[in-house]
Design a binder for these strands. Structure first.
Lengths: 191, 191
DNA sequence: TGACAATTAGACCAATCGGTCTAGTTTGCT
DNA sequence: AGCAAACTAGACCGATTGGTCTAATTGTCA
């Protein structure tokens, strides 16, 4: 049985990174709250950066789960699948107290300093956007979309605007920016 | 004549905060690059937080300038005034090497930690959004806008989506997310 | 010029940072 | 059982952090 210590640290790290961000979260604080000694931390992780990058990986496991759940549901039209995905994500935000998205948070804080984080976060956004693109391409073929829209750009746009709405949601501790963004987007996109 | 030292520090701080963010920018680093001794810093500012908050104020002076320039130009229709504003802002981003928006950066990093920053940044976004709202209200009265859109929500939406595009622009070091967002927004809004 | 305030100058400080190191403990395999 | 690897435990470390303090300098107005 693999040690649960590492997983515990990552799961706690997910929460702490969301509120504190990277720089403000001290390794000592993390370990104190986890009840784990320092030796364990540096046994499981190369260092703080490695830890945060693996926390992002864990965050993406959750995102992938939501993506699979949303796009595996054949009872919905493609556009509705996308909307459903965001509703699940928004539900998660609610559980955190509307602190926004970890990818957006770490991306903003660290993309000016660390190429590793910059590439990591950009890669994650790209994974998500490409999944949207797939659904949007199907939707377009079905005639669900307004003429002249490019699924590729439209998918990136969706991710970007969502992140902006998530930031505002974090500032206001409110879901309104999220819902308003989705309403606007889908009204503009649908045929 | 008021000391130029304080202004110098704030202007340099603007640049450094944009790339480094708050936590990663040491006071010592700032002072070293500015060629200013520590005594001066703590004479002009209460501390690091006060300094960063004043840097945001200086940032907003620039934003207000762009707002005034855009909306003072009577040769353009209201919707075009808004677009023009963002083109000026995007030009500024270009000069920085596409590092995004300072408000978005500090908002993300600090809104989970410091209520002072959270309120400050939210206040700045609100100032900008309300200016947009004014223009959108005029545009609506002129019949430039699609039916059923609310200038108030539409203005906030614009700010939020722009910030999301700015983050992606920072990750990619590219203006594309910014332009794509504007194209989409104005196509969806105009009648 | 004299005097007082504004500013500069930088040595200094306690606290905290991420990270290392060695010693002990537990685990799993043979 | 016996042994090696995985893991825990926490004292310890140099570097850096934001911030303080006193002294010297500069500017300003009477």
């Amino acid at each position: 049985m693999a040690s649960t210590t590492k997983q515990d640290l990552l799961e706690l790290g997910l929460k702490l990174l969301l509120t504190h961000g990277y720089a403000d979260l001290g390794v000592a604080t993390l370990l104190e709250q986890a009840g784990v000694p320092k030796g364990s931390f540096y046994h499981h992780f190369e260092g703080k950066e490695d830890f945060a990058l693996q926390a992002i990986d864990l965050y993406m496991v959750g995102v992938q789960g939501a993506l699979d759940a949303a796009f595996g549901d054949d009872g919905r039209e493609p556009v509705e699948q996308i909307r459903h995905f965001f509703e699940m994500v928004a539900e998660g935000y609610k559980g955190d107290g509307y602190l926004g998205c970890l990818l957006g948070g770490l991306g903003q804080e660290l993309s000016g300093i660390s190429p590793a984080f910059r590439k990591k976060v950009e890669g994650c956004f790209n994974v998500i956007a490409r999944r949207f693109e797939k659904a949007l391409t199907i939707a377009k073929a079905r005639g669900d979309l307004r003429a002249g829209v490019e699924p590729h750009d439209l998918a990136d746009l969706l991710v970007n605007c969502w992140e902006g709405a998530a930031l505002r949601s974090r500032l206001r501790r409110s879901p309104n920016p999220l819902n308003q963004m989705l309403d606007f987007y889908f009204a503009a996109v649908r045929s």
